[in-house]
Design a protein around this nucleic acid. Structure first.
Lengths: 155, 155
DNA sequence: TATTGTTATACTCTATAACTATA
DNA sequence: TATAGTTATAGAGTATAACAATA
């Protein structure tokens, strides 16, 4: 007799094979959930995790060039152009002329950008509390430390 | 004098403000690196983490319906249509007629699908070893356990 | 009425390649 | 020659809404 695939009991639970043991899989699942909560938390502001990160980096490094922002965010230079377009259209970021190199832009938050970022940071802190609701303070620290050990050579 | 934004020293390193302490941020960084290594590892096979996960789930639950696959992968039903189209076009998955309900498809791996999945699983195991290269066996286990505690209500 | 799969459509995120202006 | 920013374009991945077939 040829080997036939045994079909599953349609009433049975779906199983996930070896997936749940994979770090990559659990990380992806966690991120899907995190992304949804993030979007819901910042709902009215139309700010993605990527845009939030860019705002934080620009605030921490006022005057940085787009190429530097691209490196810091792991995005292509061309992708950063639309990202900055987006933030500038909303008057959160300004492209200033950089002192000493007329090719590059010096990025800065506008006062409105700074004010918005303050609000966002409060909301993101709440979001972090929610995602870590089942983790002790010590576990949260451990988690960050372990995540930092994944492909540290690419950071 | 009006408060002026102090520009950063152009020779200085870029800093990341409060981002590195955020679980969500570290998770995103880790995932970007993992995704790139995954793609490189499975390079010639054109299989994304999502497609790999779908193959594993179909193998573990032969005969499952598209709607069930959608739930398991956290994708919309319509997204699963193109996912299955993709795998069926490559003769890795078959849509069989489901016994007892002519609306639904019973999904199964083809022999070619099973053979490919075996190869992929070996490659993914290598990929996991690489991403966890800096983690002890105990740390790997801890990491998975901690990740499972993030928004468990969405799993 | 409700569910399954499907289609048409659109939106977000991202990259590659080619261009320009400056260095 | 090389770099900074830009544009045009394309591809992946995803979702929403409306529909036909079937339950």
């Amino acid at each position: 007799m040829p080997p036939k695939t045994k079909l599953r009991d349609p009433a049975a639970e779906i199983t996930f094979g070896a997936l749940p043991d994979l770090i990559g899989y659990q990380l992806r699942l966690a991120q899907i959930a995190i992304f949804r909560d993030f979007a819901q938390t910042l709902g009215s502001y139309e700010i993605s995790p990527g845009l939030f990160g860019a705002l934080v980096i620009i605030e921490a490094n006022p005057g940085l060039k787009q190429t530097e922002l691209a490196r810091a965010t792991r995005l292509d230079r061309s992708t950063v152009v639309s990202l900055v377009d987006n933030l500038e259209r909303r008057a959160l970021v300004e492209r200033r002329s950089a002192a000493g190199d007329r090719r590059s832009n010096a990025l800065q938050l506008t006062p409105a950008g700074k004010a918005l970022l303050k609000k966002l940071q409060r909301l993101v802190a709440e979001h972090e509390q929610r995602l870590a609701a089942n983790l002790s303070a010590k576990e949260q620290l451990t988690l960050v430390k372990l995540l930092e050990k994944i492909f540290p050579e690419y950071r």
